Lab assay of single mutants.
Amino acid sequence: TETREFDNEEEARKEAERLRRKGQDVQIRKKGNRWELRRT
Rank of each mutant, 00 (worst) to 15 (best):
3 T>F: 12
13 R>M: 13
37 L>R: 01
35 W>R: 01
33 N>C: 08
30 K>Y: 04
3 T>N: 08
14 K>Q: 13
35 W>G: 01
20 R>M: 08
24 Q>I: 15
38 R>W: 14
22 K>I: 13
27 Q>D: 08
28 I>T: 02
16 A>K: 04
32 G>N: 06
22 K>N: 13
11 E>N: 04
22 K>A: 14
23 G>P: 01
2 E>Q: 10
36 E>G: 01
38 R>E: 13
2 E>D: 11
12 A>M: 03
28 I>Y: 03
12 A>K: 00
29 R>M: 14
23 G>N: 03
26 V>Y: 09
6 F>A: 01
4 R>Q: 13
38 R>T: 15
29 R>N: 10
20 R>D: 02
1 T>I: 13
32 G>T: 00
34 R>W: 04
9 E>P: 05
26 V>H: 03
11 E>D: 13
14 K>S: 11
25 D>P: 09
8 N>R: 05
25 D>G: 07
27 Q>V: 14
37 L>I: 12
35 W>V: 01
40 T>W: 10
5 E>N: 06
39 R>V: 15
25 D>A: 12
26 V>W: 14
11 E>T: 05
3 T>W: 15
20 R>K: 09
13 R>K: 11
24 Q>T: 08
26 V>N: 03
18 R>I: 12
22 K>H: 12
40 T>E: 10
17 E>H: 07
15 E>S: 03
10 E>N: 07
32 G>E: 05
5 E>F: 15
22 K>V: 10
4 R>H: 09
10 E>K: 08
14 K>R: 12
39 R>Y: 15
20 R>P: 01
16 A>N: 00
18 R>Y: 09
3 T>V: 13
19 L>Q: 04
37 L>Q: 02
3 T>H: 09
21 R>M: 12
14 K>G: 07
4 R>E: 09
2 E>Y: 14
36 E>I: 13
23 G>S: 02
28 I>M: 05
13 R>S: 07
31 K>W: 04
3 T>Q: 08
35 W>N: 02
29 R>Q: 11
22 K>R: 11
28 I>K: 00
30 K>V: 06
23 G>I: 00
20 R>N: 05
1 T>M: 12
5 E>W: 15
25 D>Q: 13
31 K>E: 06
28 I>R: 01
3 T>E: 07
13 R>W: 11
4 R>A: 10
24 Q>C: 13
36 E>Y: 10
40 T>M: 12
17 E>M: 08
39 R>L: 15
37 L>C: 11
22 K>D: 12
35 W>K: 02
15 E>T: 05
39 R>I: 15
5 E>P: 03
19 L>P: 00
4 R>S: 08
9 E>M: 08
29 R>T: 14
10 E>F: 11
8 N>T: 15
33 N>Y: 04
17 E>T: 07
16 A>H: 04
21 R>L: 12
14 K>P: 00
36 E>A: 03
8 N>M: 04
39 R>T: 15
19 L>N: 02
6 F>M: 02
27 Q>A: 08
2 E>V: 12
6 F>H: 01
8 N>G: 04
17 E>Q: 09
25 D>Y: 13
39 R>S: 15
23 G>Y: 04
15 E>Y: 08
31 K>D: 03
28 I>S: 01
2 E>T: 11
20 R>L: 07
36 E>V: 12
34 R>D: 03
7 D>A: 08
39 R>M: 15
25 D>M: 13
7 D>Y: 07
16 A>R: 04
4 R>M: 15
34 R>S: 08
8 N>D: 10
37 L>G: 02
6 F>W: 04
1 T>E: 12
13 R>I: 14
20 R>H: 06
37 L>M: 04
34 R>G: 09
31 K>Y: 06
14 K>E: 13
16 A>E: 04
21 R>D: 09
7 D>N: 06
32 G>S: 02
23 G>Q: 02
2 E>N: 10
15 E>W: 08
30 K>R: 11
9 E>S: 03
38 R>S: 14
17 E>S: 07
26 V>Q: 01
5 E>D: 08
26 V>G: 01
21 R>K: 12
14 K>F: 10
10 E>T: 08
4 R>P: 05
18 R>S: 08
10 E>M: 10
30 K>T: 03
27 Q>W: 11
27 Q>I: 14
20 R>S: 06
30 K>P: 06
29 R>P: 01
11 E>S: 06
6 F>Q: 00
31 K>R: 11
24 Q>K: 06
1 T>G: 12
12 A>D: 00
27 Q>Y: 13
11 E>W: 03
40 T>V: 14
38 R>Q: 13
36 E>L: 07
5 E>Q: 09
40 T>Q: 11
26 V>R: 00
21 R>E: 12
15 E>I: 05
19 L>E: 04
24 Q>V: 15
2 E>I: 13
22 K>Q: 14
29 R>C: 14
6 F>V: 02
1 T>Q: 12
16 A>S: 04
37 L>D: 03
27 Q>P: 00
9 E>N: 03
1 T>A: 12
9 E>G: 03
4 R>V: 14
37 L>V: 15
38 R>N: 10
37 L>W: 01
27 Q>F: 11
1 T>H: 13
29 R>H: 13
26 V>S: 04
35 W>M: 01
4 R>K: 11
32 G>C: 03
2 E>H: 12
36 E>Q: 06
38 R>A: 12
26 V>E: 00
10 E>H: 09
30 K>S: 04
6 F>I: 01
1 T>V: 13
12 A>V: 05
33 N>D: 14
4 R>W: 15
32 G>I: 00
22 K>M: 15
10 E>S: 07
4 R>N: 08
23 G>R: 02
34 R>Y: 08
21 R>F: 07
40 T>L: 13
3 T>Y: 12
27 Q>K: 06
19 L>A: 05
3 T>R: 09
18 R>K: 10
7 D>T: 07
35 W>I: 02
27 Q>R: 07
32 G>K: 04
20 R>G: 04
14 K>M: 11
16 A>Q: 07
29 R>G: 06
38 R>I: 15
17 E>V: 07
4 R>G: 05
30 K>M: 06
24 Q>H: 14
38 R>V: 15
20 R>V: 05
17 E>F: 06
7 D>M: 07
8 N>P: 00
25 D>H: 13
8 N>W: 03
11 E>V: 05
17 E>K: 08
23 G>H: 03
30 K>E: 04
21 R>C: 13
18 R>D: 08
6 F>N: 00
37 L>A: 02
34 R>P: 00
28 I>D: 00
9 E>T: 01
18 R>A: 09
2 E>A: 12
37 L>N: 02
22 K>E: 14
9 E>D: 02
33 N>F: 05
20 R>W: 09
1 T>F: 14
1 T>Y: 14
40 T>P: 11
6 F>Y: 10
32 G>L: 02
30 K>I: 05
13 R>Q: 13
23 G>A: 01
13 R>Y: 11
32 G>P: 00
18 R>G: 05
25 D>F: 13
29 R>S: 11
18 R>Q: 08
15 E>N: 03
13 R>N: 11
34 R>A: 07
13 R>G: 04
37 L>S: 02
11 E>H: 04
31 K>H: 08
6 F>S: 00
33 N>T: 07
18 R>P: 01
12 A>H: 00
6 F>T: 01
4 R>L: 15
34 R>H: 11
12 A>R: 00
35 W>D: 02
11 E>M: 06
30 K>C: 08
10 E>G: 07
36 E>K: 02
13 R>V: 12
19 L>T: 01
37 L>F: 00
14 K>W: 09
28 I>W: 02
24 Q>P: 01
16 A>V: 06
39 R>D: 14
24 Q>N: 07
33 N>K: 06
23 G>M: 03
6 F>G: 00
29 R>W: 11
1 T>N: 12
28 I>P: 02
17 E>Y: 09
9 E>K: 06
8 N>Y: 05
24 Q>M: 14
32 G>D: 06
38 R>F: 15
16 A>W: 09
35 W>S: 01
7 D>C: 08
6 F>D: 01
15 E>P: 00
31 K>S: 07
20 R>F: 05
21 R>W: 07
12 A>N: 00
33 N>Q: 07
34 R>V: 13
32 G>W: 01
3 T>S: 10
40 T>K: 10
7 D>Q: 06
24 Q>Y: 15
19 L>D: 02
6 F>K: 00
12 A>I: 02
11 E>Y: 03
